[in-house]
């Protein structure tokens, strides 16, 4: 029997790796992939708690999170394509017009 804390520790590890990737990566698409990784870390915690407490609400929330991730990917990749058109680069350091 796998303890609940193992699942939660794995979820925390995946979330942390995703957060590090968002900070370290400079490519806009790679940052997006790391955000997806963070969402998946949160999903794992939700599914684990839902399974252990016998409440279906957590899995429905994962369903909603997947929908939000799909919407976010569609809009985000559209923004990335439009940035690439104007700047010919996906490096987030190049998109610094609004930086003081």
């Amino acid at each position: 029997m796998v303890p609940l804390s193992w699942y939660l520790a794995l979820s925390a590890a995946l979330f942390t790796i995703g957060a590090v990737g968002v900070i370290v990566k400079r490519n806009a698409i790679a940052i997006f992939l790391c955000i997806e990784l963070m969402l998946n870390g949160a999903n794992l915690a939700l599914v684990a708690l839902s399974g252990f407490f016998g409440d279906v609400g957590g899995q429905l929330f994962v369903f909603i999170v997947m929908t939000v991730a799909a919407a976010e990917a569609a809009v985000g990749l559209a923004i990335i394509i439009s940035i690439f058109r104007t700047r010919e680069s996906l490096n987030v350091d190049d998109a610094d017009t609004m930086k003081l």
Partner: peptide
């Protein structure tokens, strides 16, 4: 759902955009 929606649909969108933009290596500027 994880396989069908995430690995199937969302990641295909990512791979499609990566190939469309024909990206080079990620270099710190």
């Amino acid at each position: 759902m994880q396989i069908i929606v995430y690995a199937g649909a969302i990641m295909v969108l990512f791979v499609f955009v990566i190939m469309l933009l024909n990206l080079q290596e990620d270099q710190p500027r």
